[in-house]
Nucleic acid binder design. Structure first.
Lengths: 140, 140
DNA sequence: TATTGTTATACTCTATAACTATA
DNA sequence: TATAGTTATAGAGTATAACAATA
């Protein structure tokens, strides 16, 4: 029996390809680590999301998330706003430049992934996303 | 447009699930990091594979691979043999205990992944592996 | 000259523990 | 007591550069 039957291994191998594609098309041009791009995009999709929720979504600890938010905040890409309803919490928001940057970055990434995966049929790409989301739904 | 359409993001999210499954079923019981398990299994599948080939397969540098091989070697799970045909190179081999360990670990992992993905149909699992391998084939 | 592998080194990323503030 | 977030700290994993040995 072989690694080829291990989903986790195949996910990593495919991730090497998409990761390299990300670095070339978005990471280097925009000076964004994958996690930084993801944080910005998640805030864009869910305004007022909290650091704790972000940390859970990306399977990291809150101190790690604090460090990433510090970096992005220093670059004026996002802002921390105090929650009114709960004085302990924060609501994250993109700055205008953060919003503009992530919007362009996402468009570039969609385009470069489309190029990268052009040899897959439309059905295959849809099927892939669907199955991956089913697996992700197992997240505890 | 959303992260849900980004294959790289969905791969990471699914990887969080399979990674947690690996840690629970194999990583902790056998005290193996994912990369360590993968190295052992790749040697098992390709006896006499070289450190350089392993490093390329796993998208890491040779100094990093040296460190992992040192660790596994100290645990007597593998051996470095000098290549006869090329005095610069090495041929990696599993020890008896390394071979036994990775064989059991792989069986456990296959079983725990089968449980984890029981909600996917057989066709979905086959389709997933097939598409991921097509993406991996893009590796440069 | 190019390649294989190692050593030395520093940097990035991470987690744990201890803390503050609020609920 | 529990939760949100930060700070301090140490450890894991990484890459780059310099090296030795062989091709």
């Amino acid at each position: 029996m072989s690694l080829n039957r291990i989903i986790g291994y195949q996910l990593v191998q495919a991730g090497i390809v998409t990761g390299a594609n990300f670095m070339h098309g978005v990471g280097k041009p925009y000076k964004l680590r994958p996690v930084e791009f993801t944080i910005l995009q998640l805030i864009r999709e869910t305004p007022h999301i909290s650091p704790t929720t972000l940390a859970k979504t990306l399977a990291m600890t809150t101190p790690s998330m604090t460090a990433w938010l510090d970096k992005l905040s220093k670059r004026k890409l996002l802002m921390r706003e105090k929650s009114v309803s709960d004085g302990r919490g924060q609501k994250l928001a993109l700055t205008a430049s953060g919003s503009a940057l992530v919007e362009k970055a996402l468009a570039d990434l969609l385009e470069s992934e489309a190029m990268l995966l052009a040899h897959l049929s439309l059905g295959e790409r849809e099927m892939l996303l669907e199955i991956l989301q089913k697996i992700t739904a197992e997240k505890t």
